[in-house]
Design a protein around this nucleic acid. Structure first.
Lengths: 216, 216
DNA sequence: AGGTGTCCTTACCGCATGGTAAGCACGCTC
DNA sequence: GAGCGTGCTTACCATGCGGTAAGGACACCT
């Protein structure tokens, strides 16, 4: 019987892992099934035993990435209390997620370039509600005077996500534009840009100072 | 004899144009020479007559994109007078360049993903001085109190360029996350983010963003 | 012991790919 | 008009691709 539930054998998970790495590095078209099989240490038909086709493998890899967010996002949004807390929570989790494995960012980036129509559908269907939710929190923060009145919430959220994605995907490149270990500088500046373009400096300075120093 | 100067025949330029479009849309590996030949309306060996190999075509397409900047950047930097003028000039030209033909952004994005080592060399070699120059202008503006003191100029420049690139490359996608024609909203918000994360609101009161307290 | 299903192998297939060989038509120079 | 280089054609080639066929090793159930 063909498994409706994932069999979760070693080869299957190793294949998913290798496929993510190789798709991210060389692209879907640039990766041969033989490459994946070699990376796993089995033969080509072995991995085709677990996935009906290369196309199914792509989808499985994407599902691994996307399923993380279907689980993490509700938790994050419910856990954080106030508007700006929610922003920090989601922003931080997003950065951490892609910093943990930049291949995730590269894979998504490639997917957006390779199959815009499918990604469009995905965005319209399941991702958009999350954009709307985060944008809603920003809007409510805006009404409380926390943010710039000129912020376009939806566009802001999309841009910041794009920036986090692109920065994670291009991390090894970006550090070539600076000296030494530029990673922490980039991370800090990314957070600063996201923050400074949302929170005006006066209220922001009070808030962070109050938050950071009062606790110590 | 193989031409050292570009012959500039119709087929050659048409091939470059088609190759840029197809490489941007389907990637280098995902584009067959036959596809390019079909798009141009000639046979496969015809385009191999103008470019020794597919690899040479990739480089030629990249050269078309990069040569624009070797010409435009000095002009822009010399034309603009003050620090923030220079910023607006370079930022505006960058946005316009990629908005004119988003395939340029997609091509560069793919190149960064496909061949990080080569792009790294390119960055270290010829692009980096321009980053440094723009960063220098920001630093001088910072000393005049125009910008946030916490800005990391080099990291800021890289991130903003990344954002412009990613936004141009993903433009058709991003508009799927919003309603209606979202393009102008995205462009405006992108400019706002770049601006607001560099200029504190008080110092640019007469420029754009002063509506926050006075309007509401 | 025999049956059965899972996981993986070797061997193979049809096809598309990047690239080459050889030659043809045209325009130029002498 | 002979010679020749340029720009292109048709015909072809070796390779590597995604995917299939068929069967073996092994575990587990009856």
């Amino acid at each position: 019987m063909v498994a409706s539930r994932a069999p979760d054998t070693d080869v299957r998970v190793a294949t998913l892992s290798a496929a993510m790495r190789l798709f991210a590095a060389h692209g879907f078209e640039g990766t041969a099934l033989q490459d994946i099989a070699d990376a796993v240490g089995v033969t080509k038909p072995a991995i085709l035993h677990h996935f009906p086709s290369k196309e199914h493998m792509r989808q499985a890899v994407l599902d691994v990435i996307l399923s993380h967010w279907n689980e993490a996002l509700p938790r994050l949004l419910l856990a954080a209390t106030a508007g700006d807390d929610r922003f920090d929570a989601v922003f931080g989790e997003t950065c951490r997620f892609f910093a943990t494995d930049p291949d995730r960012a590269r894979m998504l980036m490639r997917e957006a370039l390779d199959r815009p129509a499918e990604v469009r559908k995905l965005l319209r269907g399941s991702v958009r509600p999350w954009f709307a939710a985060v944008a809603g929190y920003i809007r409510s923060g805006k009404e409380k005077g926390l943010h710039y009145a000129t912020v376009d919430e939806e566009a802001y959220v999309v841009h910041i996500l794009l920036l986090v994605l692109a920065a994670a995907a291009a991390a090894p490149l970006a550090s070539a534009a600076l000296d030494g270990d530029a990673r922490p500088r980039f991370e800090r500046e990314l957070a600063r840009i996201a923050h400074a373009s949302l929170f005006p400096p006066s209220s922001d300075a009070e808030r962070t100072v109050r938050k950071r120093k009062s606790q110590r």
